[in-house]
Design a protein around this nucleic acid. Structure first.
Length: 367
RNA sequence: GGAGAGGUACCCAAGUGGCCAAAGGGGACAGACUGUAAAUCUGCUGGCUGACGCCUUCGCUGGUUCGAAUCCAGCCCUCUCCA
């Protein structure tokens, strides 16, 4: 058994409030995890991430396996020490990269074979290789290598992806790993309820410490996304954490939580920050816009982040226009803090039974 | 004073008789972004119009031509070399 423990403390409808106990601390769920693919949340220091209230973040086995490589990570004493992050870390397996870098990948039941996007060499990546990489990293939460279907996908391909995802999950499960690390299975099946149900039930049979919903928010219509998500959580164990991979937008976070999801990750707060878009409780703003040129107010009035306490929209716009990297840092910090505040507000809304009003408000300001 | 090169849209810069409201950059303006090959990508950039289209614009003035950024004449300005 693993050390990881998820305690559901409050339930309202399908939504749950709880806490996830990891070897690197406790996090309140539902939780949003910022993404640091290459062992860094781009442009932000770990202590600044910590100050946003985030206590768990995401990194990536595929990218770190290729560079700097496992030996470097082992010598560093694992990923936490390597990147100087004391909170919890969840590492993605590389399943998403098998899809997103798909033009250089061939997939068999044995392995995904691909050309390294870094130096072009041929790399064979088996489910066991992904687990080995994540063991070397010392991730608190380890993800199974899965086959993520793009959208749209044929029924045959989606069925095959589910079959292979389950097969690879069994092989990952068979790898021995330290008790301090917990392995999550990933449900695939595109937008097909039948496949989702089958995949969820087969993974549940294997009794993972947690379960993820993968292959969503990859281009399907919103109603299909939400329907599939809500349908799938019904087939996952009540007491285990559910993690919706790669999501997402504030509207999607609300839907996810109301559908019984406990964990989320997304590049949106950080990528959008680098592109000038800041999230606020009143909607998002593009800080590059000329109308902010002389605006002395902070990104978000009332925000308690260290950026909003000290810097004006005017200054941040100037940094963007001038191409200064501090712009990315400042807006990234604000956005990550915003997502933490947003999740806290959402948890509170659920506790108070105010979740429907909360959802309406979020939909209104984010159109 | 002599010889040469050149003046094109916000900037740089292509275009040397019609397919030119004018390539390509940059900048400006706006948009996208969902398990990050992303400091990326897309749109737009003379005026009026929903659109067809019309009007004004390639240093200035005049000319040749059915038609001129493009050919001719004069003028103005910039740069390089020589004196």
């Amino acid at each position: 058994m693993t050390v990881l423990r998820h305690e559901v403390e409050f339930v309202r409808g399908k939504a749950r409030l709880g806490s996830l106990h990891t070897p690197h601390g406790v996090v309140k769920t539902p939780v949003f995890m910022p993404v640091g693919t290459q062992a860094t949340i781009k442009s932000v220091l770990p202590e600044d991430i910590w100050d946003t209230g985030a206590r768990i973040l995401l990194s990536n086995a595929y990218h770190l396996y290729l560079r700097p490589g496992l030996e470097v990570l082992r010598r560093a004493g694992g990923l936490h020490k390597f990147m100087n992050w004391d909170g919890a870390i969840l590492t993605d397996s590389g399943g998403f990269q098998v899809m997103s870098l798909g033009h250089m990948v061939s997939i068999t039941d044995e392995a995904a074979t691909f050309r390294s996007h870094i130096d072009g060499r041929l790399v064979t990546f088996r489910p066991e290789d992904s687990i080995e990489a994540q063991i070397a990293m010392g991730s608190d939460i380890v993800m199974c290598l899965d086959q993520c279907s793009p959208y749209p996908v044929s029924m045959d391909d989606a069925t095959d992806a589910v079959r292979r995802t389950v097969l690879w999950a069994q092989r990952a499960r068979a790898v021995e790993m330290p008790k301090t690390q917990a392995l999550f299975g990933i449900v695939q099946g595109s937008t097909c309820n039948q496949l989702r149900r089958q995949c969820a039930l087969e993974l549940a049979e294997m009794d993972f410490p947690g379960y993820a919903l993968g292959g969503l928010a990859v281009g399907e219509p919103k109603d299909e996304f939400y329907d599939t998500m809500s349908y799938t959580t019904d087939f996952l164990p009540q007491d285990k954490p559910r993690y919706l991979m790669g999501v997402g937008h504030p509207c999607d976070l609300v839907e996810g939580v109301l559908a019984g999801v406990d964990m989320f990750d997304c590049v949106l707060p950080t990528r959008n920050a680098r592109h000038g878009r800041a999230f606020t409780m009143q909607g998002s703003v593009n800080l590059r816009n000329a109308r902010f040129a002389a605006e002395q107010s902070p990104i978000e009035e009332g925000c308690d982040c260290r950026v909003c306490r000290r810097f004006s929209r005017s200054y941040i716009r100037h940094l963007f226009v001038a191409g200064e990297s501090l712009a990315w840092t400042l807006v990234s910090i604000h956005n990550i803090r915003f997502f933490q505040r947003f999740m806290a507000a959402l948890r509170e809304a659920i506790r108070l039974g105010n979740q429907w009003n909360f959802r309406e408000e979020v939909r209104r300001v984010y159109r």
